[in-house]
Design a protein around this nucleic acid. Sequence first.
DNA 1: ACCAAAGCAAGAGCAGTGCTCTCGAAGTTG
DNA 2: CAACTTCGAGAGCACTGCTCTTGCTTTGGT
Lengths: 232, 232
Amino acid sequence: MNTVRGARERARIEVTAAIKDEARRRLAAEGAAKLSLRAVARELGMVSSALYRYFPSRDDLLTALIIDAYDSLGAAAEEADAHALAAGAPPRARWIAVCESVRTWALRHPHEYALVYGSPVPGYSAPADTIGPASRVGNVLIGVVRAAYEGRGLALPPLPPALGPEADRMTADFAEGLPPAVVPALVAAWAQLAGLVSFELFGQFKGVVEERSAFFAHAAGQLAHGVGLPAV
Amino acid sequence: MNTVRGARERARIEVTAAIKDEARRRLAAEGAAKLSLRAVARELGMVSSALYRYFPSRDDLLTALIIDAYDSLGAAAEEADAHALAAGAPPRARWIAVCESVRTWALRHPHEYALVYGSPVPGYSAPADTIGPASRVGNVLIGVVRAAYEGRGLALPPLPPALGPEADRMTADFAEGLPPAVVPALVAAWAQLAGLVSFELFGQFKGVVEERSAFFAHAAGQLAHGVGLPAV
DNA sequence: ACCAAAGCAAGAGCAGTGCTCTCGAAGTTG
DNA sequence: CAACTTCGAGAGCACTGCTCTTGCTTTGGT
């Protein structure tokens, strides 16, 4: 692998990266709604039609940015967890560290966060390529809970009987080895985490929450409690 | 009031309403990103420039739709709570009923929900006119918790000392009469509720949660627990 | 080493957009 | 009735995503 296939292929990779970089820059500056292919091309010194050799449409460019954003966020979460783990943190502290890393990443890349967890852009349905990167954060959270479970430090949340089969299916599909009762709570906590971050990022806390960091830390702790990682 | 001020004024009101109606229709059909002033005007048999007599810009039209959406959602939540209250439901059941009503409204008006709780559209900062309607759902939730508190049915969640002053400020600002410890939990629950609905609506649960209704009901119950409305 | 095939940038062009300006017709008010 | 305001229509500007055609450059097989 990594074979040097010639100038052409190398140029294509570089140009593709340059386009994505410039697009990300304009995304950060003006938001997804105003991201224009022509402006990106102009900034790169090429003509707009040339850009279509690399991305067949504006939505394809956005999809590429979405995948990169998922990957970047996923990497941040994984790194935060690895750090906490290396520091000997117990599962609850790891959980909170991951939540904080998601929030920090979102505050640093607001438009990219909006791209992945905000309203989907056009008619649009997420291409299959996105589901892999999209699940990285979820997998980190699953890993933390699994560690708690294997360390006998997991308090099982209640599960209504009506949700039993669904919990079993979820567990088999993407959380093998965990007790089914915790899986719905875990998925809910993931969505709730996104809700907290989105509200802060999208201005819904304006005039409501002022001490955002302290508030978030508290909420992340409550989230941990909800999935069975009680304080001390 | 309701004085008939002449044909002109009446026409203005009717045309404004017609524009919003048509815009809402196109919003539901194609989403906010593709909502075009010209298309709305065309559908109404008027020329695009005439529309600017009623809304000075596209964003102003969107803002009007946002306010209406907040009001519609708020009314749905208030009605759901009133129904539950009239049926003699205890606070916990009222809480869940309100959560369900938000989800139901969102599923019925996905694009309008995305407009208010999704990523903000342009460069954007929410105009002041939106904050009133925006808080109606929150006020309903506050009312439910207040009823529980006054009925001695509220279990106070823990509050870290670091968040004490902020909790006091929040309580004084928009939740007077409630014990400060519950207010941050309440705000967090509100954001988390939006996270649950957004994830379902924006396709984040695709391949993850199948029994969406049962899952949501469970999560809403957990949310109730988190704000101090325990089961039975 | 040559030459056809493929990849590429550029330009023109289409249909559509938000928004501005001007002009004449209509309604409102003294 | 006259002065004034409001409105719809049309033309026009700068911009968008996207397509198509035209030549040039790189590539890969003979």
